[in-house]
Design a protein around this nucleic acid. Structure first.
Lengths: 91, 91
DNA sequence: TAAATATTTAGAAAATTATCTAATAGTTGA
DNA sequence: TCAACTATTAGATAATTTTCTAAATATTTA
């Protein structure tokens, strides 16, 4: 929920790749796991971190849990980066 | 030098605060360290990670080493985030 | 060149994060 | 209700990152 959670979530390449996959379309946990060489529990952990950071939503559909991308959180990251760029003046 | 280095560098709150400090003006390693409760070697390590990610430049001036902010690397991060937002369409 | 100051490097310990296996929980359909 | 399927949780281990102390390097000035 904090910007720290967002940055931490984005710091891992597996998690960024999950977001890249979800860019194309919503996917179940199993479909996501298929793309990686690590175990499902490990993917589940990554999904949980992304969820805590609100970078994804999850919704149960029958046996499956469908994950979808949420980029609204990027606003805070963008704001922070913009503010850093503002004041910059080199000597 | 990779986007992974950038995200990893930004994932730590101490390092983000260092960037915030450098937004105002260039600072020596010692001046930066004064703002934190951790030791100078630890700050030095953080500065090194920021340097590897090219988020800061360093320049020796006499006894001091002056650090300055470099936000050009943000372009890659922005691009990645923009691309994620593009294709998004909810059902 | 020696002392004082600023900073980094080296190496180890502590803390955090990622991953695994085994077990548990929810859903469907016979 | 039970078997099959999907996914998560629990708990342990492995890997990485952060932090520390002690030592080393670089610069300035006497």
């Amino acid at each position: 929920m904090s910007i720290n959670d967002t940055f931490k979530a984005l710091a891992d390449p597996t998690r960024r790749r999950i977001l890249d996959l979800l860019k194309e379309r919503d996917l179940t946990a199993g479909e996501i796991a298929e793309h990686f060489d690590i175990t499902k529990p490990s993917i589940s952990n990554h999904l949980n971190l992304l969820k805590q950071a609100q970078l994804v939503w999850d919704e149960r559909k029958g046996q499956h849990i469908v994950y979808s991308l949420n980029t609204t959180v990027f606003q805070d990251v963008l704001k922070w980066m913009m503010e850093l760029q503002q004041t910059q003046s080199k000597g």
